[in-house]
C-alpha cells in the first residue's frame, strides 16, 4: 500500500515538474506574449496542481490536505483572472470590443 502511495506521489510530482519545465521553456521560446501566456497557465494549473496532488497523501492530516487543495484553487483562480486581464492587454488591437 505505502509503496503504491509513494509511487503515485513520485509520479505526480515528477509530472508536475515536467509541466513547470514546459511552462518555462514556453515562456522563453514562444514568439509572442499570448502564446507565452498559454505556456504560463500550463505551469500554474497543471504543474502546481500535480505537485499538490502528489503531496496530498503525504500531508499527514486532513486540515493540511484541505489547505493544499485551497492553495491550488487560489493559484488557479488568480492565474485565470490575471491571464484574462493580461490577454486583454496583449491583444494587438488593444482592449477588445
Amino acid at each position: 500500500m505505502t509503496t503504491i502511495v509513494t509511487l503515485f506521489s513520485a509520479v505526480a510530482i515528477c509530472a508536475g515538474i515536467i509541466f513547470f519545465l514546459a511552462g518555462t521553456v514556453g515562456l522563453l521560446r514562444f514568439p509572442d506574449s499570448l502564446t507565452r501566456l498559454h505556456a504560463l497557465t500550463k505551469a500554474d494549473n497543471l504543474g502546481l496542481g500535480l505537485i499538490i496532488l502528489g503531496l496530498l497523501p503525504l500531508s499527514g492530516s486532513f486540515s493540511t490536505a484541505l489547505k493544499l487543495v485551497l492553495i491550488w484553487a487560489l493559484v488557479q483562480l488568480a492565474g485565470a483572472t490575471a491571464a484574462q486581464l493580461i490577454a486583454r492587454l496583449a491583444r494587438p488591437s488593444g482592449r477588445g470590443k
Binding site: 510530482i13 499538490i52 493544499l68
Partner: peptide, 24 residues
C-alpha cells in the same frame, strides 16, 4: 511589461510549489 510580469507570476507559482514541498 506583460512578459516581465508573467515571469514573476511563474516564480510565484514555483515559490508556492517549493513552499508546499518543504512544508510536507
Amino acid at each position: 511589461r506583460i512578459d516581465r510580469m508573467m515571469a514573476v507570476q511563474l516564480l510565484g507559482s514555483g515559490g508556492v510549489a517549493v513552499l508546499v514541498l518543504l512544508a510536507v
